[in-house]
Computed example of a mutant assay.
Amino acid sequence: MNDQQLLRYSRHILLDEIDIAGQEKLLAGHALIIGAGGLGSPAALYLASAGIGTLTLVDDDTVDMTNLQRQIMHTTERVGRNKVDSGKQALAEINPTIEIVALKERVMGERLEELVARASVVLDCTDNFATRHAINRACVAQRVPLVSGAAIRFDGQVSVFDARRDAPCYACLFPEDQQFDEINCATMGVFAPIVGIVGSMQAAEALKIVAGIGQSLAGRLLLLDARTMEWTSIKVARNPTCDVCGKAH
């Protein structure tokens, strides 16, 4: 690291668990964030400020006025712009020293696996089961850790699915062949800070994974009820017959 980097990241370097070696791992790391909305905004902002070396932001949507109540990466003047371009501008203003790749795409199939394979960690900041399952499959296939978050109304959840370990994948928790109600904030509403809390936790888990510190949420699901501000931690076991990860172990 040069003198400017030592100064910029000095508060990380002061932490014994991170130090210079951990910060150098972050600078060499590559985070893939899929979804540049409520969850992706705080996650991307913290990863950029913390010095993740490369940040790839994927989203095919544009900034809408209704997004601004919670999607803190975007501004009123950027309504109508592509979310990834708006996000890239915000991230570059915070940290112009990292590489920011903005992809206006809805990634699936081989393209998704290609992007996942390049990453050190993947953050699922999307809002539908089909995309979440596709991301999970790609992460299991490429053995890249996945940090998953979700938020609706006053409820949030976050977990880590790490195919490098004997840990469950997303499909162990939410099997693809089971029917779950698709609900989103456009119809159900969402308490603005809940996406900030969950997205920030996703950033924290991603940074821990890349820096190789602490213990991740792999094998645990955290649930938050913001009405009472109570957390619930649930242990999640790997399903040995899981259609996605069962064959991978």
Results as ranks from 00 to 15, higher is better:
residue 2 N to C: 05
residue 2 N to S: 13
residue 3 D to H: 12
residue 4 Q to L: 10
residue 6 L to R: 15
residue 7 L to T: 08
residue 8 R to Y: 02
residue 9 Y to L: 08
residue 10 S to G: 03
residue 14 L to D: 05
residue 15 L to N: 09
residue 15 L to Y: 04
residue 16 D to R: 15
residue 20 I to V: 13
residue 22 G to I: 09
residue 23 Q to F: 10
residue 26 L to D: 03
residue 27 L to Q: 12
residue 29 G to A: 14
residue 29 G to Y: 04
residue 33 I to F: 00
residue 36 A to L: 03
residue 37 G to N: 01
residue 38 G to L: 12
residue 38 G to K: 12
residue 39 L to N: 06
residue 40 G to D: 06
residue 44 A to C: 06
residue 44 A to G: 08
residue 52 I to P: 10
residue 53 G to Q: 06
residue 54 T to E: 14
residue 54 T to S: 11
residue 57 L to F: 05
residue 57 L to C: 08
residue 60 D to N: 14
residue 61 D to V: 05
residue 61 D to C: 02
residue 65 M to N: 11
residue 66 T to S: 15
residue 68 L to C: 02
residue 70 R to Q: 11
residue 71 Q to K: 07
residue 71 Q to C: 07
residue 77 E to A: 15
residue 77 E to D: 15
residue 78 R to E: 14
residue 79 V to A: 08
residue 80 G to N: 02
residue 82 N to K: 13
residue 83 K to G: 05
residue 83 K to R: 10
residue 83 K to L: 04
residue 84 V to P: 02
residue 88 K to T: 06
residue 91 L to T: 06
residue 100 I to V: 14
residue 101 V to S: 12
residue 103 L to H: 09
residue 104 K to N: 14
residue 108 M to C: 12
residue 108 M to P: 01
residue 109 G to D: 15
residue 110 E to Y: 07
residue 110 E to A: 15
residue 112 L to S: 08
residue 114 E to H: 11
residue 116 V to P: 02
residue 118 R to I: 00
residue 119 A to I: 02
residue 122 V to C: 08
residue 124 D to H: 04
residue 125 C to W: 10
residue 125 C to I: 08
residue 128 N to M: 07
residue 130 A to E: 13
residue 131 T to R: 00
residue 132 R to E: 02
residue 133 H to Y: 13
residue 134 A to I: 09
residue 136 N to E: 07
residue 137 R to I: 04
residue 140 V to W: 00
residue 140 V to E: 00
residue 141 A to M: 05
residue 141 A to G: 11
residue 144 V to N: 02
residue 146 L to K: 08
residue 147 V to C: 10
residue 148 S to L: 07
residue 149 G to Y: 04
residue 149 G to N: 10
residue 150 A to T: 12
residue 155 D to H: 12
residue 155 D to K: 08
residue 156 G to C: 06
residue 156 G to M: 06
residue 157 Q to V: 01
residue 157 Q to Y: 03
residue 158 V to T: 10
residue 158 V to R: 02
residue 159 S to R: 05
residue 163 A to L: 14
residue 164 R to V: 00
residue 165 R to T: 15
residue 166 D to N: 15
residue 169 C to T: 00
residue 171 A to C: 10
residue 174 F to Q: 09
residue 176 E to Q: 13
residue 181 D to M: 10
residue 181 D to L: 13
residue 181 D to A: 15
residue 182 E to I: 06
residue 183 I to T: 15
residue 183 I to A: 15
residue 185 C to H: 09
residue 186 A to Y: 12
residue 187 T to I: 09
residue 187 T to A: 13
residue 187 T to Q: 14
residue 187 T to L: 14
residue 189 G to Y: 05
residue 191 F to G: 05
residue 193 P to G: 08
residue 203 A to T: 10
residue 204 A to F: 08
residue 205 E to K: 01
residue 208 K to Y: 05
residue 210 V to H: 07
residue 210 V to N: 03
residue 212 G to K: 11
residue 212 G to F: 10
residue 218 A to H: 00
residue 219 G to K: 00
residue 223 L to S: 13
residue 223 L to K: 06
residue 225 D to V: 03
residue 226 A to M: 13
residue 229 M to V: 11
residue 230 E to A: 11
residue 230 E to W: 07
residue 232 T to W: 01
residue 238 R to Y: 12
residue 238 R to S: 15
residue 239 N to Q: 14
residue 241 T to I: 04
residue 241 T to K: 06
residue 243 D to P: 02
residue 248 A to T: 14
